[in-house]
Computed example of a mutant assay.
Amino acid sequence: MTQAFKALEGLCRLLILSAFLLLSASVLLQVFARTFLPTAPVWTEELTRFCLIYIGALGAGLALRSGDMVNVDLLCESLPGRWPWILRLVSAVLTALFSAALLASAWQYTRVGVRQTAPSLGWRMDFLHASMLVLFVALGLWALMRIFEMLTGRHDGRPIPVSEDL
């Protein structure tokens, strides 16, 4: 199971890198066109927004794993005994439950996009709306992994710093 999540983490990182490189190329093209050409392509701004949305959707699960999400460690970690561990477990369970509960709505939102197109790119909007599915699936999977690791004693549920990931 750990190998599968390492593969998923690698895939998420690769897709985030791809989206970031596409975003960078789009912004550079926009800046170049506005500076040196008579007109600039309109679609670069829309593509940049799409890339940012996917970076956020793909990165949410990784942020949960590395501790880059907003935490209330000051309160939780100051509690005595096993309470911090219990609160981390409850938090992971709630994250998984909310992610699962929102999947049906994310699917409906994605399906609505089939009938819409992006104004300047002309792409079907379900490709963009699917980012919500990606977000909730990724976040739910990482929360389930944290629950599994905590219940099996492999990890105490604290965020894993990026240096340990490598």
Rank of each mutant, 00 (worst) to 15 (best):
M150E: 11
L133K: 03
W123A: 15
G59Y: 03
L97N: 07
V114T: 06
L58K: 00
W107Q: 00
G157I: 06
F50E: 03
A106R: 01
A130S: 10
L74N: 14
A96N: 04
S18N: 00
S26A: 15
G140F: 05
W85T: 08
V42Q: 12
A100E: 07
P38K: 12
A100C: 14
L121P: 03
F50A: 05
A143Y: 09
T48P: 04
V134I: 08
G81Q: 11
L75G: 02
F32E: 07
R49F: 04
R111W: 00
V42Y: 09
G56C: 13
L89K: 13
C76R: 14
T48W: 08
A96R: 06
E149G: 06
F32T: 13
I147W: 11
S131G: 10
L62P: 02
L151D: 04
R158G: 13
N71H: 09
A130R: 02
V72A: 11
A106H: 02
Q108W: 00
G67H: 11
S24A: 15
T48A: 15
V93Q: 06
S66N: 10
T95Y: 08
E46I: 04
A143M: 11
T152E: 08
L47A: 08
A19G: 03
L29K: 04
V42K: 11
G122F: 06
N71Y: 05
A104Y: 08
A63G: 15
T152G: 06
